[in-house]
């Protein structure tokens, strides 16, 4: 199987056109508008409004907690204070909208792909608007982000976007307005894919912009040091955000079934080395397999969800399956 990578740093074109390319599965031709196509992708998932896992202040009482300096004194339960001479805050169970923060990795390694663009896009286009003939991991991450944004916006929840590499390169503020989806896709389409990844720094920068608790969805290949990722997840956990780690990988990155000795050149500035792939395949597979398994283990150890996405697979079915599973888990945790 041939593998190809796009030229790093190439800016992308208009979001309108790109949205159609990213979101459509093989049945795209039978669907009508863009919204209908997105809805088709998540069919079965949006069966009803979900119950928020976050405890707000507006609906029904849930419990008390001791006052700590800095708490809003408007939520003090004065009746408890009068009886016990102690300050407690009232907490409520509220059904609220979901704040989704989608973080897309735009580092150089995301520019690798081995799938034909024409086959992946499903709209008959042989190349991307910028002339690429391959479907990269970043293309797949863009499609994934667009789908998630669409679903969230369809629920009336707020969606924000952060595109990062060694730092946050572009951020779209959270909003539940309808144009938000186009803003998200537009931002992804115009992003240059290059540089290295610094997850810790990016998480730090993103969390600094978020004041309330959010669901962070990080879409990346996670080709980072596990210790760096562990520190970033610890910060997220400390801020009590929920998180879903979606690791996007190209099938060839795991199979590594090249037939001929060739020089290999890194997309993030690594040195070039000539390698006989057949000779090193087993060792390579051990390396990357160990890393992928380590990422999954690490993410799950923090109680977060981990989803591995193959850029050669269609996005709809696995995404729908995952969201259904997640929804069921939330309901079980609430009632049980």
């Amino acid at each position: 199987m041939d593998s190809r990578a796009v030229n790093a740093g190439m800016p992308r074109t208009a979001p309108t056109t790109d949205a159609a390319l990213y979101l459509h599965p093989q049945t795209l031709s039978r669907l009508g508008s863009m919204e209908m196509r997105a809805r088709h992708i998540v069919e079965g998932v949006m069966s009803g409004m979900h119950r928020s896992p976050y405890q707000g202040f507006s609906v029904e009482f849930a419990q008390h907690r001791p006052y700590v300096p800095g708490d809003d004194i408007r939520h003090l339960d004065w009746k408890v204070y009068g009886r016990t001479d102690k300050l407690h805050l009232k907490q409520y169970q509220q059904e609220t909208s979901l704040d989704l923060m989608v973080m897309v990795d735009a580092s150089g390694s995301m520019n690798y792909g081995s799938r034909d663009f024409a086959e992946a896009s499903g709209v008959g286009a042989a190349t991307s608007p910028d002339g690429r003939s391959i479907w990269t991991k970043f293309d797949h991450a863009t499609a994934l982000a667009a789908a998630l944004s669409y679903i969230t916006l369809s629920q009336g929840d707020r969606v924000g976007l952060a595109i990062f590499a060694d730092q946050v390169r572009e951020m779209v503020a959270r909003s539940s307005a309808q144009p938000q989806w186009r803003a998200v896709v537009g931002a992804l389409s115009c992003t240059t894919v290059d540089r290295t990844t610094d997850v810790g720094r990016v998480i730090e920068q993103t969390l600094a912009k978020i004041t309330n608790r959010c669901l962070l969805v990080i879409i990346s290949d996670f080709f980072v040091e596990l210790e760096q990722l562990r520190a970033a997840l610890a910060r997220v956990r400390h801020r009590r955000h929920d998180m879903i780690a979606m690791q996007v990988l190209d099938r060839q990155e795991l199979a590594f079934d090249f037939a001929h000795a060739s020089p290999f050149e890194g997309l993030e500035g690594e040195s070039r080395v000539r390698i006989d792939p057949r000779a090193i395949r087993a060792a390579y597979q051990r390396e990357i397999g160990s890393h992928v398994a380590g990422v999954e283990r690490l993410v799950r150890s923090f109680g977060y969800d981990y989803v591995r996405v193959d850029s050669h697979d269609w996005l709809g079915p696995p995404l729908a399956a995952y969201l259904a599973q997640r929804n069921a888990q939330i309901k079980r945790s609430k009632h049980g």
């Binding site: 150089g108 290949d221 060739s262 997309l267 080395v273 090193i280 390396e287």
Partner: peptide
């Protein structure tokens, strides 16, 4: 004769190469 392959997971390839 061969054109270079631009590779995303280069860090793992280099690690495997250094070992082997």
């Amino acid at each position: 004769r061969r054109a270079p392959v631009r590779w995303g997971a280069m860090k793992f390839l280099l690690a495997a190469y250094r070992r082997q």
